[in-house]
Design a protein around this nucleic acid. Structure first.
Lengths: 387, 387
DNA sequence: TGGCGACGGTCAAAGGTCAC
DNA sequence: AGTGACCTTTGACCGTCGCC
């Protein structure tokens, strides 16, 4: 289908993912049957995985099933291309289902009562939305551990294309890799703040509807959402060392009662609230990566964002609705309507608590700015977060 | 994947180990689920067993668990091959229906299908919840126009039974009745603030689960929710004179650009936001009174409310879920699943904006307190709203 | 047209789950 | 703690499609 590597026969070629014997070029990469099928299934189903360890598990023939997150990441990083996946393969006729084509097709067709089986058009769209979000989220998780150049201004960053599409070419930053648990220093916190805010911009730029906005509207959305993105990723991807620790990917951790060196005079600590009101609920609700991604997308597209021009608010609102619908579909499809409605409601109702924490953080940043001799706020952070 | 017997289906085949029904070829031998799992676990765990007898125990379906040594020996002797055992795989998560916080009243059997007709038991409960809320809301609307005695302290008010059950016996307050439109004075705003906050207490006390809480937990909830209640009622019940006016029941109105006499030095006006982010969306979404009531109830029961004791948080969370579920079913029952999901999502996602407005209001009140010579904050308001 | 290579689909047999 | 009915995931194999 895709003459990507035309006319080439792998010889004693090995799978680029797991070093098993390659059976050919699959999705643009020499790979074995297992990794080929694994990659397709992962993309098609929207299933997503969380690494139980530090996100850098070994992947080889013997242990390739041990960590699906790292296996998938390796698939992506060695160049497997999701665009080579054909979702519209109706052409395989002679399987079990015989065409009932023209006879009684409309018996159950447009009965728009709620039967899952007849929701195809909406569902296909939702599935596609989730799939896209999921792919981006995985790229984002890779970029989180990459070496990033010195941040330019927010405006310049918004104007350049998203790094996420070139994440395979960027080398890793060893400061982001887990080595051991240790109490976070202020430098750790600042480093991750800057990194996540940068990721937020790269992430936002992957939304077509976002890139179509004017510069000032883009700015309005990311200024509204930046720190939320930061905190949400911080707690969602925190390594799980119990309910009293937020652990960054590199092992730096923050305690419920923050260590002295990361306290800021005059500021109310919000770390315990990040644990109680976001991290723990995320875990209790069993929020998966695609759900998390859709939730974030619906928060990015906030029609009430400060300084957003009134004429784009309807589109922003529609985008929000799009991601909310996809989220609802995805959840209820997995765990059923009854439980899904509850999970969806509980997830959405985390938003006001998150907002309140962000508001407290804004206040803290004002205090830090006034008493700036304690900690200078980074230029990039200031540009993106200070009102 | 089939290193031994390829493409074969055992028919009435029996387990070579225990003569139970074989479920397939496992590790090279036709065997049942039990022996298959037993063999794998034994190999993986490295356990070794000692026979209590002579090492020649009988192994069959009924006694296969009697001697693990002899069972394992039989496994090996009939040809089970340890080389077919793989390395540990990744976790796959819950397989049974949802392992989350379970409710007492278990839902009906097939709640994972989108068929409204099979929800009767749950729906009956939801309907009852909505009916109750709606009745209270109507009483509340009557009480809004009644003459209220001088407010006591918040604690005293919480301790006494709700006025809403005696609303028929209270006479009207003519200051609350519409006579004409006129620009609100600061006195109007203060009067309505106090009145709504008082209503909030009377309203909250109608919830059985609320009255069962300790005084301090009750206080935590109403302090968290009081001003939200105030603002939500203000805009929801605003007489509709277009998108640029909030009109109190007595005709006093506030403009998008507030008149000079109600501006407070040092405070950012939040009236335009109340219009844009709450009043107009309520109208656009066609939110009905029962929906509005359920929404408020779900906001009252906020498990993240400041100073709430940790041990009641689960109950509070369950209450919230109860009202959210009722809200969802009420909406979808009226306008169908597709539109209902959207309306529900949009309604819930107003909550963060509302929270942000409340946070801005809190900040304004701090400013007013510091520069208190402009406007003194009422004692009751202060007790209920100042942090 | 016919061979070839890369798609998607299939299903026995792996491993994981959790009420008992 | 151990068991096993029931569940998801895996991957070798096969049919189909589109290119030379």
């Amino acid at each position: 289908m895709q003459p990507r590597q035309r006319r080439k026969v792998p010889e004693g070629e090995l799978c680029a993912v797991c070093s098993d014997r390659a059976t050919g070029y699959h999705y643009g990469t020499p790979s074995c049957n297992g990794c080929k099928t694994f990659f397709r299934r992962t993309i098609v189903s929207g299933h997503t995985f969380v690494c139980q360890y530090n996100g850098n598990c070994d992947v080889n023939k013997n242990v390739r099933c041990a960590c699906r997150h790292c296996r998938f990441n390796k698939c992506v990083s060695v160049g497997m291309d999701a665009r080579a996946i054909q979702n519209d393969r109706d052409r395989i006729g002679p399987t079990k289902k015989f065409r009932m084509a023209k006879t009684e097709q409309n018996s159950s067709a447009d009965d728009d009562q709620m039967s899952m089986s007849s929701m195809s058009p909406q569902r296909a769209a939702d599935e596609k939305v989730i799939e896209l979000l999921n792919g981006i989220e995985n790229l984002c998780n890779t970029l989180r551990t990459c070496a990033l150049d010195e941040t330019k201004s927010v405006r310049e960053t918004l104007a350049s294309p998203s790094l996420l599409y070139h994440v395979g070419n960027i080398e890793m930053d060893h400061n982001t890799i887990f080595k051991e648990l240790y109490p976070a220093s202020m430098n750790d916190i600042q480093m991750w703040n800057i990194r996540e805010l940068r990721l937020c911009l790269e992430w936002a730029k992957t939304f077509e509807e976002f890139t179509k906005l004017s510069e000032s509207d883009q700015l309005a959305l990311v200024r509204n959402f930046g720190f939320t993105f930061n905190i949400l990723n911080r707690v969602f991807y925190s390594l799980d060392h119990g309910p009293d620790k937020i652990v960054y990917p590199n092992g730096a951790y923050i305690l419920r009662q923050p260590q002295e060196q990361v306290k800021i005079p005059g500021c109310r600590s919000i770390y315990h609230r990040q644990m109680d009101e976001i991290m723990i609920p995320f875990r209790k609700l069993n929020v998966t990566i695609p759900e998390f991604a859709a939730f974030k997308a619906s928060l990015l597209f906030n029609p009430d964002a400060c300084d957003l021009s009134p004429e784009v608010k309807p589109e922003i609102s529609m985008e929000r609705t799009k991601y909310l619908s996809a989220l609802f579909y995805f959840i209820t499809n997995k765990i059923g309507l009854h439980d899904g409605v509850q999970k969806y409601g509980q997830l959405l109702m985390m938003a006001p608590s998150i907002q309140n924490i962000i508001d407290q953080n804004d206040e803290n940043m004002q205090v830090m700015e006034v008493f700036g001799h304690f900690w200078r706020i980074d230029r990039f952070v200031k540009e993106l977060c200070m009102k």
